[in-house]
Design a protein around this nucleic acid. Structure first.
Length: 580
RNA sequence: UGGGGUAUAGUGUAAUGGUAGCACAACUGACUCUGGAUCAGUUAGUCUAGGUCCGAAUCCUAGUACCCCAGCCA
């Protein structure tokens, strides 16, 4: 994974714990480190998940261990195969490798069921007939202890019988649960006799109708890890309050078990260590599952792969590289408190990567026609252009030049303000890789809009250098009008206008912070002919404009590009300060 | 008002009793056939108050602020 260009992963508190665990006398001395990424297949992955994947996968790799991709599919009501497929694609795209270690929690339902029976026999679990409302009422509050369920002291035999009948489908949804017998007065609410199994007569995407009881997260997750030989179970901060339960369930199964398997209960099972870290938050966007769904359902974005979304599918379509995302993950590090990373850092990472790897081409987004008055009608020059100044091995290409060209509308100003180095009447500039041109006059339509420029060129400056040594203040990009390929270009800005989209007036939702300019579609763009057969997801730098990625919509017949990120733009900054 | 966590420049992250460093952002300047890239530089920080120590971001005490927990979700 760690290519030459990737940032070195720093030491962090999790890695410190791993080092401590494998050291002599440590909890996992002599064991192979194993981590897992355990998505629930009910949503698309976003860059926050990329952070998690990269911590999990990164640690496994660093310590010569194993990495499991495991679907935590314990709730049949919400999960679908479609998400399984997309998540696999995203994790693979990111660059994590699981070498056949693809697992499903639902495959462990049988084993978990047996352990549940074991807990009942050890008098650590009971079948409870309380309704959901009653369970809630018995739970107590943050400050007041809960009350014991009246079914808490059922005899073991009765529990065994009832639980078997629950499994056999004899009871309707919701009328009974299996609960752990722990402590209804515990200050940590999670420990007040947590529910282990609920009845759900729902078809499971992999198990079909085999089960009508399904395990709850707290009961299931530690066992999923244990079965797979996971040593370090890394999760987000909100599970900190659940760690005592994670440990309690495994300890409960291990009670009475022995290292060599002698005795009535058999061999001890693996007890992984759960470690929590903070999720990623990014400025100007949202990461929560529910909010992303709302944005899609509300029609505020096109779909889950809308390039404005922080989903991995969206970032991919936008033109982000896995390498850029990995570097970003390495830079942001791991911590235990909530923080929000400036989206500018993500943009920095993708620019840094794309600068080194993207072929340069010329494209005009908002075209203004230029006629070179003294250039011979019908003549074409094939000029040499460098494909990537950062990478000589990328070579050069030919770019056609002719009498009629398009330049960027923004590169001409009739009344140039101070520090405007580009084209204006009477001024000379360079057309990249071509000639020096001087603007003679601007043709306007009846409404006063400039529709065409007339310029002259200096044949002696072919290739872009003046033999007499004279300098120009600026170089602009262009395309030959008769050779240009029409294209559609989609420009993106932050989806929200506020750093924290949830910062809304009382009673409003985050849609009030939606950026009306988050998508701008330009349909009259022209790109140089080298792009004729550009394939979906290919990435380019449009010189002086930014990095662009071919959108899959190109298959519909119109060459379409997404702007991944703009280039740093000094002139835009100057303009901003001039306006103020 | 119970329990569990966390506090370092604008943002993020190092320093594990010994010069508070790095990155992003911002701002200067140099260079440039991309106002890109690159290079050089500037601004800016240990939550508060005490204490221990030759020496504290780090250890101790007392505060303060913020986050998480009352789904048969994960």
């Amino acid at each position: 994974m760690t290519g030459e260009n990737e940032k070195e992963t720093r030491h962090d508190f999790i890695r410190d714990m791993v080092v401590e665990d494998i050291a002599p006398g440590g909890r996992f001395e002599g064991k192979t480190i194993c981590t897992r990424f355990p998505p629930e297949p009910n949503a698309y992955l976003h860059i926050g998940h990329a952070k998690a994947v990269w911590i999990d996968y990164g640690i496994a790799e660093e310590f010569g261990g194993l990495f499991n991709l495991r679907f935590d599919d314990t709730n049949p009501a919400k999960e679908e195969q479609e998400f399984v497929d997309c998540i696999i694609e995203d994790v693979r795209w990111l660059g994590a490798k699981w070498d056949g270690r693809l697992f499903f929690a639902s495959d462990y339902f049988g084993q978990m069921y047996e352990w549940a029976i074991e807990l009942i026999k050890k008098d650590k679990a009971y079948v409870c007939d309380l309704t959901p409302d009653q369970v809630s009422a018995h739970r107590g509050t943050l400050t007041a202890p809960g009350k014991n369920s009246p079914y808490r002291d059922r005899p073991v035999e009765e529990n065994l019988d009832l639980f078997t009948r629950m499994k056999n489908g004899e009871f309707p949804d919701g009328v009974k649960t299996l609960r752990a017998k722990i402590d209804m007065a515990h200050p940590n609410l999670n420990i007040r006799d947590p529910i282990m199994y609920r009845i759900l007569h729902t078809e499971h995407h992999r198990q079909g109708n085999k089960w009508c009881i399904y395990p709850m997260y707290d009961w299931a997750h530690g066992f999923e890890d244990s079965i797979e030989g996971v040593t370090h179970s890394l999760c987000s901060l909100e599970y900190e309050n659940h760690r005592p339960l994670y440990d309690w369930f495994i300890d409960a199964v291990n009670e009475g078990r022995t290292d060599d398997g002698s005795g009535p209960w058999g061999k001890k099972i693996n007890h992984p260590r759960q470690i929590e870290f903070a999720r990623l938050n990014l400025s100007y966007t949202v990461m929560s599952k529910r909010k992303l769904i709302d944005l899609v359902r509300g029609g505020h974005v096109r779909d889950f792969d809308d390039p404005r979304l922080p989903t991995l599918a969206g970032l991919r379509r936008r033109g982000y590289t896995p390498e850029a995302i990995r570097n970003f993950c390495a830079i942001i590090g791991v911590n235990k408190f909530y923080s929000t990373i400036d989206v500018a850092l993500l943009e920095h990472c993708v620019r840094e990567n794309l600068n080194k790897t993207s072929p340069r081409v010329m494209a005009v987004l908002k075209p203004l026609k230029v006629v070179i008055d003294n250039y011979p009608e019908g003549q074409v020059d094939q000029l040499d252009a460098v494909n990537n100044p950062e990478d000589p091995s990328a070579g050069t290409r030919k770019v056609p030049f002719s009498k009629e060209l398009y330049i960027e509308r923004d590169d001409f100003m009739e009344i140039p303000p101070p520090k405007f180095y580009r084209l204006s009447i009477g001024k000379e500039i360079r057309l990249r890789y071509a000639y020096f041109i001087k603007c003679i006059n601007a043709v306007k339509d009846n409404a006063g809009n400039i529709v065409e420029l007339h310029c002259t060129y200096d044949p002696a400056t072919k290739g872009g250098d003046a033999p007499d040594g004279r300098k120009v203040k600026s170089t602009i990009h262009w395309v030959s009008a008769k050779d240009a390929i029409p294209a559609e270009v989609r420009l993106y800005e932050n989806l929200f206008t506020k750093e924290n989209p949830d910062d809304v007036p009382e009673g409003k939702d985050l849609t009030v912070n939606l950026n009306p300019k988050s998508l701008e579609i330009l349909r009259n763009c022209f790109v140089e002919p080298a792009l004729k057969n550009a394939q979906p997801l290919a990435r380019y730098q449009f010189e002086r404009l930014g990095y662009f990625c071919v959108d899959p919509d190109t298959a519909n017949g119109i060459l379409t590009f997404n702007r991944t990120v703009s280039l740093r733009d000094e002139w835009a900054k100057i303009q901003k300060t001039q306006k103020i």
